[in-house]
Amino acid sequence: MHTAYDMLTGPCAWTAFILFFGGCLYRLIKMLWLVWKKERFIFSYMSLRYSLRSLVHWMVPFMAVNWRRQPVLTIATFAFHLCLILTPLFVSAHIILWEEAWQFSWWMLPDGLADAMTMVVIVCAGYFFIRRLVSPEVRYVTGPSDWIILSIVAAPFISGFLAYHQWFAYRFFTMFHIFSGEVMLVAIPFTRLSHMIISPFTRAYMGSEFGKIRHARDW
């Protein structure tokens, strides 16, 4: 058991982090290289002002028309993504691990709050799951990959939640939590979870086109 744990928190964790950061960098460089090679005109239409204008309107809840039209989805989307990113970065158990490994730490969330944020991620993932099943326009374009990436994202939070509360099979869920977290990190750059790093660029490009050429709002 200890060997497996050492594997997961040692070589596997290193591999996951290297693949995550390296993969993200690779995806960004590859995208920019492709723009440079084949659609260089895009650079000449990019505008910092209009990119930010568009990003702000879409990154603030209810600022875009479509966010206002779908209030439940908007709340779920923003709560999900916010908690998804903040919880693993600031949960005390993770920070203690950093501290043990590298002797540095940073601000940590109170455990109760982190637990609530984990539940938010799980509940919202459940909402997305149900939405994929029952909403015809979503179901129509849902394939196996959509279920897989939703599972990849939900797994570390469900297992983390169970491990934290130690209700049953604590050791298994701790190990599974670490493993699934590593899977998620690796999956981000190499699946459509890459929207985490790529979507600001697609948004910025559309924002620039709408701002500079179309003189219209893209939200």
Binding site: S54, W58, A64, V65, N66, T77, H195, S199, T202, R203, A204, Y205, M206, G207, F210, R217, D218, W219
Partner: peptide
Amino acid sequence: AQYCPFGI
């Protein structure tokens, strides 16, 4: 394009 959160 105005309704896609990613501006696709």
